[in-house]
């Protein structure tokens, strides 16, 4: 990997130039399903950012301090998914206990997150690119924030399009895909900004 990259650069790159959903196609399923209105999109975006940041760090510790010394690297997919599922479950109980109002906003999205590919994808990218702990933390946060930004932007566009006259075959997923494509094109404009992927 050569020179260790500044964590801040990684964060910006993860949020803008290599946005999770717009250039790596991660987390598409919930991205399309939950972007119908801005309120839920915002809630899910927040939850993803939070979980992605913390699971990146948690999985980093598990991978380098448990799996690598024990030579169990080939089990990593199972371990990562269990860590994510367990963490989400734990978080759900914790939020329910300490902040019922936050739970009302975030609660329904938490179970969805376990199977959101953005989370597992973020963790796998972190391992493949050999990030250190600090870089992983910033990478996790940046990717989550980028995902959040994208879903909020998409939901506002979809809300505006709801009243418009669209060809009936295109209503729904077809149109959403094309809007996402245009958004991805706009995000492509960031690509010269940071010299990492």
């Amino acid at each position: 990997m050569g020179v260790p990259l500044n964590p801040f650069v990684i964060m910006v790159a993860a949020a803008l130039t290599s946005n999770m959903v717009l250039s790596n196609f991660l987390g598409m399923c919930s991205f399309i399903a939950v972007s119908k209105d801005i309120k839920t999109a915002n809630g899910l975006g927040m939850a993803v950012t939070f979980v992605l940041t913390l699971t990146s760090v948690l999985n980093y510790l598990v991978y380098y301090y448990i799996l690598v010394p024990l030579e169990l690297v080939y089990l990593r997919y199972i371990v990562f998914i269990i860590v994510i599922a367990a963490f989400v479950q734990f978080l759900e109980m914790l939020i329910d206990r300490f902040s019922p109002s936050l739970y009302m906003n975030l609660g329904i999205f938490l179970p969805l997150i376990t199977v959101n590919c953005a989370i597992l994808g973020g963790v796998l990218f972190m391992i493949i690119r050999d990030y250190n702990l600090m870089q992983s933390l910033f990478f996790g946060f940046g990717s989550g924030a980028g995902w959040w930004l994208a879903i909020v932007a998409l939901s506002t566009m979809r809300m505006r399009l709801r009243e418009k006259d669209i060809p009936p075959q295109l209503v729904g997923p077809g149109l959403t895909m094309i809007i996402i494509g245009i958004m991805a094109l706009a995000f492509l404009g960031f690509s010269g900004m940071v010299p990492v992927q």
Binding site: L22, S23, L170, M177, I178, I180, G181, A184, L188
Partner: peptide
């Protein structure tokens, strides 16, 4: 080769 084209193509296929 870039990401946006994939979205456009799949959108068109769905259409």
């Amino acid at each position: 080769i870039t990401a946006p084209s994939a979205f456009f193509i799949i959108g068109t296929i769905i259409w």
